[in-house]
Design a protein around this nucleic acid. Sequence first.
DNA 1: GCTCATTTTGACCATTTGGTCAGGTTTTTG
DNA 2: CAAAAACCTGACCAAATGGTCAAAATGAGC
Lengths: 227, 227
Amino acid sequence: MRARDKTQKSAVREENERAILKAAEEVFAERGFRGATTGVIADRAGIPKANLHYYFPTKEALYRRVVEHIFNVWLDAANTFDESDDPVEALTSYISAKMDISRAHPMGSKVWANEILHKAPVIQDYLETTLRDWTASRAAVIDRWIAEGKIAPVNAQYLLYMIWATTQHYADFNHQVDTLNGGLPLNEAQFEEAKRTVTGIILAGIGAIPPTAVGPDASAQPACADA
Amino acid sequence: MRARDKTQKSAVREENERAILKAAEEVFAERGFRGATTGVIADRAGIPKANLHYYFPTKEALYRRVVEHIFNVWLDAANTFDESDDPVEALTSYISAKMDISRAHPMGSKVWANEILHKAPVIQDYLETTLRDWTASRAAVIDRWIAEGKIAPVNAQYLLYMIWATTQHYADFNHQVDTLNGGLPLNEAQFEEAKRTVTGIILAGIGAIPPTAVGPDASAQPACADA
DNA sequence: GCTCATTTTGACCATTTGGTCAGGTTTTTG
DNA sequence: CAAAAACCTGACCAAATGGTCAAAATGAGC
């Protein structure tokens, strides 16, 4: 090819980068940045190590691309928060989206966790810009719900942390969860129950729904706790 | 010394092992198992690397000791769960203890998180014995509270995960929490509010207390959510 | 089929790192 | 005090690993 549009990637490049990034996400998640070796990543992508370095000059550049991709997936899920202005609907869909990502995309969550654990050497700027802005604006939404009497007064920031921690636990700590489940991954029904439990406790915890009203099939007595 | 009691450690050995283990916990937390080097650990402990290897023959043996120590700290906190048979008291003291550990002992939590993230190569046996037993017995307690009508029916296992995830978040993700707090660690008042928020949402979420009744100073209207 | 950019790869290198070892010093004990 | 045990450490080594490079293969456009 003589003069390709510089923004256009050749098919082979596209395909190789995809394979490398997929392998890299797995290996970085399993072994951390230091524990991951370009040799192993290349093997898993089915190419020689020297070829990997042709596409990604350094291990750090590759890692950066992986983390950026994960951050974008995370941002997509974050948008479900805005699907409704009703706290029950908004939080239900947000929690559901985050739980689904934990199940379908656990490697990404693990890479993120690893990065934060090691003081975010690569993504500190994201934390200070995009994440900080997102968090502040959603905290404002929650504060408005409180002002409108839709939910009980709780600290919005710490509520968000609670949602993040709980949903991501099913990705980051899935090995522990699996072990405590007899060594098997949660099946579909178990995972749905976990999702209902998390959603129910959060929503009841902020007074958006009565306790025990977990899930749409909640027909039990409305149960005001101090009755 | 000719014939020291084999279970008795000399003072110098005691002191050196202590310094090494302290340094090791920090370095393993900051850099993970692979990222940590015996050289850096020795430096931070103030001894030559060869001396470290005199006390701990291999890096893995040292790591194992660190993880065992952390597990014991964790078990101590776990006992606060049994201080009372009242769900509000028991869960309040348990959550409080776990939050305090996250604040005072974050390195340990991070080492644990790292280990689980990497599929627990060293502590799999603990997960399958001590942790599994502890979890099952406390789940039974929670189920009894449900049967006695003290709390709403929730899945005990997933409730426990929620408590672990939320409390440990303040240790494992403290860098993210700090960044979203303007780059500064949570001060005493903020941390206490986080603790109250977590406790309040959990307890209200399972119908043990009414929403908004967060903390002992809750004198606001009792507010039954569905009123 | 010629040209030239792109892609591929085995061989290689410098650095890092876990761990060893021989010989030394200090402490305990009889 | 003498011997034995415990402790200390600089120098060293083999393996692993991130990255380079030169030479070869490939393929698009003329």
